[in-house]
């Protein structure tokens, strides 16, 4: 007798993803969909997708999706959650979206302690537009706008948004994880589930920052990109629970 051990999550539509080979979005989409299914919240969850590669998340998740203007995910999620406080509301945002264009909205949403969850996918560049420097780009990292590497004096240093948000009074749970290994993928899923539970318990603002490979713009193989997260990205953005005031 056949036993199903691996299948498409219930809340992912049966359409092919457009993401590049080795991209982290596909994994993160799956993890979120699995958590939604396991918590049995698919019929009460609203997702706010970003501007960027993951805007097409609205074609992939089989839940209600409301696209935000660039960077304004937390602001839009705030509006949805305040009107419908019993629903689950999360924004899904990249680093260019959340740490550059939407920094102000994000900081104030966290500071107000909005009871929303933010999934912050950090691939340390602007992916969709072709690999330009983002605020999160590492020192020395090549990008189309920092040929020869990001220079501290010329371009400034990478910004650690999660640490910035952690000092706000309203942020309750912030964790940085990665999806570059089986171990880290499992930890990421746990963090997403915890963030959602924080919202379900009405505790306040929760955010999971996920270090994610971008082999296309990093100009690496998918395997090398995963290794680079360990050897490079984590040196600037170490995995850790940045803030946890849930207990």
């Amino acid at each position: 007798m056949e036993k199903v051990v691996f299948k498409r999550p219930k809340y992912i539509k049966k359409v092919p993803f457009h993401y590049c080979p080795g991209c982290g979005h596909s994994i993160i989409h799956r993890l979120i969909a699995e958590v939604i299914e396991e918590l049995d919240i698919g019929e009460k969850t609203i997702c706010v997708p970003p501007a960027g590669c993951a805007v097409l998340a609205y074609d992939y998740f089989d839940i209600d999706m409301g696209e935000a203007p660039h960077g304004r995910g937390a602001a839009l999620a705030t509006g949805v959650k305040r009107i419908l406080p019993d629903k689950m509301v999360f924004s899904y945002q990249g680093d260019g979206d959340i740490a550059a264009i939407g920094t102000a909205e994000t900081i104030h949403a966290a500071n107000r302690g909005e009871n929303i969850t933010v999934i912050f996918v950090n691939n340390s560049c602007y992916g969709m537009t072709g690999g330009q420097m983002a605020p999160t780009t590492l020192l020395g990292q090549n990008s189309t706008t920092t040929p020869g590497g990001r220079d501290k004096d010329r371009d400034g240093s990478p910004i650690d948004l999660s640490e910035m948000l952690a000092i706000t009074k309203g942020a309750v749970y912030i964790e940085r994880t990665a999806v570059n290994s089986i171990k880290n993928i499992i930890k990421t899923k746990k963090a997403i589930a915890k963030a959602f539970k924080v919202q379900m318990a009405g505790l306040g603002f929760s955010l999971v920052e996920i270090l994610s490979p971008c082999p296309t713009n990093w100009k690496m193989s998918p395997v090398d990109a995963c290794e680079w997260i360990d050897d490079g990205v984590m040196q600037t953005f170490p995995l850790k629970i940045v803030k946890d005031e849930t207990s």
Binding site: K44, T45, I46, D62, D64, M65, G66, E67, K87, M88
Partner: peptide, 16 residues
């Protein structure tokens, strides 16, 4: 309106 796809197909609001 986006209020959770409870007993109906999921909806998308987008400008793109």
């Amino acid at each position: 309106v986006l209020d959770g796809a409870n007993g109906r197909p999921s909806r998308i609001i987008k400008s793109l």
